[in-house]
Design a protein around this nucleic acid. Structure first.
Lengths: 231, 231
DNA sequence: TAGATTGTTAATCGATTAACAATC
DNA sequence: TAGATTGTTAATCGATTAACAATC
């Protein structure tokens, strides 16, 4: 997986594009890691692409292709060393470094995320929560302090926080995004069903529950139709 | 597209879904609907694919292609009738019918979902929650009763529930899935980072938080690298 | 050795994007 | 009419899958 520029790019005099792996590949890495950590816990030292594929109901060729992005080399006839592969995937995902984040919107969903201590194993630590509701400010949710919005920008700057998790209401989302972007945030994990306008340098990862529900609804409807047609 | 229903089918029922639209199309439908409902609230009567595309930062050709799956016909030079388009998308997603669901696992995330009253506008109603913890059984979370696991199968069968929402712990997920599948569930909205084994007739929609986090982590890391390379 | 599995190159598939005539 | 937009067909792009030699 060389990151050499394509001839056309070189010819055009542009700087070599740093390539990111395909997004579907990146998403699958998280599940590979899950399997690998479990398997390590069971004392298994090597694992084949075939085994990973079976556990995740994927094709082994896809697993092999994906794993190649981490730079690991396997042993034909054997597979990959579990410990090494875990290290490579963690490095690929930058989950071997800790990333600090702030969470804005300490409602039900925000509270649930604050309680997710599994994040620690995924390189994420939420350093504080923020909310506009004076009744919430000053309290703690799952051991995280809830601070007032007026403290947000300053904390981001002072602690060089790069990631913000948005769980505010839809009508507040854009203004909060503006605020954190101004303060220097580089990535937003957005749980609000709103299309945020941000400068190009800021990356937004949208988690849209309703799009998942849409898929499920359509598939349920589709299966029912099939059943009825079969009668 | 040859089997597109005529406008007159609106009263008669729904388009015969022989093929399912591409999954990315289905996911985007949810966001189209969001824009349309807002725009309707503002009193706008027609909307062009161009306008929808701008609001969602998409290409207009993609919006037009997607909307074609609903069977709607627009007016060249004008666009689509907002009210009609909302109806078509709701029908496409089956969100004009109510779907009952059970939620299993009344922890933090499960509780947050129980409190999401927006689901009502997306055709979903959670009729009850279930949990193995005796301390939770008998309580109410956001006005939903929490019942014991021993009542689950019977309620699914009696009420002909087709959808189950899984927010249990990872180690319980497969056995709960087996249970609801046996009881006749046709679709599972799975929030547990576990690959469920289910019969082919059951559709599983996985919502994997960590895969979203993986994308965000990689992009943050990537942007930082680019910045450093630029120096 | 025989069987399993890797890693690469090529083929296929499916979704996105482009082009453009038709039409309001 | 002129400008905007739809809807269709074709081209492109990117990801998945197939094939298979190399190798443990």
């Amino acid at each position: 997986m060389s990151s050499e520029p394509l001839p056309s790019e070189a010819a055009a005099g542009r700087p070599p594009l740093l390539r990111v792996a395909p997004l579907p590949t990146i998403r699958r890495m998280a599940s590979y890691l899950r399997i690998l950590r479990r398997v390590r816990g069971e004392g298994q030292e090597a694992i084949s692409g075939t085994q990973i594929a079976e556990e995740l109901q994927l094709e082994s060729i896809q697993v092999r292709k994906d794993l190649a992005y981490t730079g690991i080399t396997g042993k034909p006839g054997v597979g990959f060393l579990v410990e090494e592969l875990i290290g490579k995937i963690e490095a690929f995902l930058n989950w071997d470094n800790n990333t600090d984040a702030v969470l804005i919107g300490a409602g039900h969903l925000g509270g649930a995320l604050l309680g997710f201590d599994a994040f620690q194993r995924y390189g994420l630590s939420i350093v504080a929560a923020f909310d506009a509701d004076p009744d919430k400010v000053g309290t703690q949710i799952h051991d995280k302090h809830v601070l007032g919005m007026e403290k947000l920008a300053n904390l981001i700057e002072r602690m060089h926080i790069r990631m913000a998790i948005l769980t505010v209401t839809a009508d507040a989302a854009q203004s909060v995004a503006d605020l954190v972007v101004d303060a220097g945030i580089e990535g937003i994990w957005n749980f609000v069903p709103v299309t945020l306008k941000v400068p190009e340098r800021v990356f937004v990862q949208n988690e849209d529950l309703f799009s998942g529900l849409a898929v499920l609804s359509v598939m349920l409807q589709h299966n029912r139709r099939k059943d009825e047609a079969a009668k």
